[in-house]
Simulated scan of single mutants.
Amino acid sequence: MSRLRQLWVCYRLQLKVMMFSPFEGFLAVVFPLMFATAALLVYRVNNDPEAMLFAGIGAAAMGIFTSQTTSAAMLVQRERRAGTLELVVAAPTPFAYVLLPSTFAMATLGLYSVVAVILWDWWLFDLPLQVENWPGFVLSILMATFTIALFGFLLSVTVVRYRTAWALGSALEYPGWLLCGFVVPLSLLPGWALPLSWALAPTWGVAAMRASAAGESPWFELAVCLGVGLAYAVLAAWLGVRLIDSARRNATLALT
């Protein structure tokens, strides 16, 4: 119970910080609408309703992914700049139990983008969302959010040793949109890029969203999405211990 309370407190506090942060608030509120507008303006040229719906669903998921890449990469860096990273690492609570609820808070804020983009598409482009399987669609959104949070957890752990972690997160944002098939079909990607796409949980999450919208079964995509996300969590937990131990041995944790 004490561990669950600690996770809840970290999650709630991080969510409050993000909601009242000017940068995080702008990123969460404005960016998803900008990205959705740009994507749908491109697709509207051909006047293809199916393509517009494809892009609209992908654009709704882009906001969740965007809420993780740059923010999760900067998570440890913010602690380092504030001079609290050493205290967090030295605390009895495992380092992973501090990062994990923080990335889930970021993903929770990213859920706003799904609703906002759907309403934005309907209001600006007259593109109502047509969903045949609403329970599967909602479950797919939640699964995509869950696994993207675990991807952010892995990213935040991986960059603990780097000064310019924010740059790595920003560099992953736009290639991730392509590799996950948010606005471009995976069939248009070169063959060597497909294994990279399959290794990204959001690829399967957005595929499940589209399958549910079309009235098809999303269960295979959901199962793969969950499996890949849990692999992220296991790898991040293992890396967290190894990287922190290495930083302690080499006295490189501060990296200011």
Rank of each mutant, 00 (worst) to 15 (best):
E173P: 00
A207R: 14
P190Y: 07
A96E: 13
A236Y: 06
T84R: 06
I64P: 00
A213Q: 01
A171P: 03
A237M: 02
A59I: 01
L40Q: 12
G58W: 04
A208I: 09
E216N: 13
A90G: 04
M74E: 12
Y11P: 07
W134R: 11
T256I: 15
L178C: 11
L124V: 12
L168H: 04
A213C: 03
L119I: 12
E24A: 13
V228Y: 05
S197Q: 01
A247D: 15
I57V: 01
L196K: 01
W8F: 08
G191A: 13
R210L: 05
L188F: 07
L255F: 09
G110T: 11
T203I: 07
G240N: 12
R78E: 15
W192N: 08
P49E: 09
F125P: 10
V17Q: 06
W8Q: 10
G83A: 06
R210P: 10
R5F: 04
E132F: 11
T66N: 11
T145Q: 07
Y232H: 02
P22G: 02
G176R: 01
S67L: 14
V115S: 08
V29N: 10
G205Q: 06
Y97N: 15
A236P: 09
L100T: 00
S102H: 13
A73C: 04
W238P: 05
R12Q: 14
L186R: 03
P101A: 05
T252L: 15
A39P: 02
R163F: 03
G56L: 07
A107C: 03
P94G: 08
M74Y: 15
T158L: 14
F137L: 13
L178A: 13
S246N: 12
L75R: 06
V76E: 10
G63F: 06
S217T: 15
S71G: 11
V89R: 05
M1I: 07
F220G: 13
F95W: 04
L226F: 05
M34R: 04
S212F: 07
A149M: 10
V138F: 15
V206Q: 00
L200I: 06
V98I: 10
W120L: 04
L226H: 01
I118Y: 08
D245A: 03
L40K: 09
P128K: 09
V131Q: 03
F220L: 08
S212H: 03
P202S: 07
F125I: 06
L155K: 08
F23E: 04
D245M: 04
F26A: 03
Y11I: 00
A165V: 06
L142I: 11
A254I: 14
V224F: 15
